[in-house]
Amino acid sequence: MGREQRLAQVFVELADTLVEEFDVVDFLQTLTERCVELVDTDAAAGLMLHDQRGTLHPVAYTDESARLLELFELQKGEGPCLDCFATGRVIANIDLTAASNRWPVFTRAARDLGFTRCHALPLRLRRQVIGALNLFSIGTERLSEDHLAVAQGLADIATIGLLHERAARDQVVVSEQLQNALHSRILIEQAKGVLSARAGTNVEGAFRLMRAHARRTGSLLTTVAEGIVSGAIGTGQLQDAPRTGGAG
């Protein structure tokens, strides 16, 4: 499949989730995964949202390493995601070996995890910044302008998704939306633990099984997580190898 075709397919997929049953965490999780895929780089992505009380929270991430780095930035109070959120500006192609003056602690932690470059894109809503989409990449190649435009496009879609959910509910304050997103996230983590113990795998492996099952059955990740926790989805059902390969 050509790149443009795949790009169109991803945008249709994300637009579809806006009209069907909508779940914030599921939507943002898919979005971060597609972002990594579309920028053609060995990268990890994470997405953080602001709770309007001065705190950012990691809500979706493709790898544990992305979440760890985001939490690390929050703890140490320095890093590209925080700067992107504070200024509303895109931070692109930062060479982690050359940025130690700017973020001494963060750059060391990111390099220790094997990353060489970082990028951060703001989730903008008019003049407000409501979060940031962060990419940590491996390798020496820079992200092209095209790739950055795609990533910013995805960040904008994330904003639209969040607005969409607020509009669809009677009265939704931002803190309620975030609180719900965090609880969906907790549910997914609980399910990862349950599945890893049942299937005798690690939590990352359990998460891969859950994502594959959600994709294969067209279910929300949170629905799969609920099914695992309640026992409605048995371990055997999840261990079937995916029938189709490819980028999906």
């Binding site: 929270h57 544990e64 979440r67 939490l71 965090l182 996230r185 907790i186 983590e189 609980q190 399910a191 990862k192 633990g193 349950v194 599945l195 890893s196 113990a197 049942r198 939590v203 926790v229």
Partner: peptide, 18 residues
């Protein structure tokens, strides 16, 4: 109560099975 660490919730799942 609301430990931000994902591991606490993952461990909750593991312990529930064990």
């Amino acid at each position: 109560v609301f430990d931000d660490r994902a591991e606490v919730h993952q461990a909750t799942g593991v312990v529930s099975v064990q």
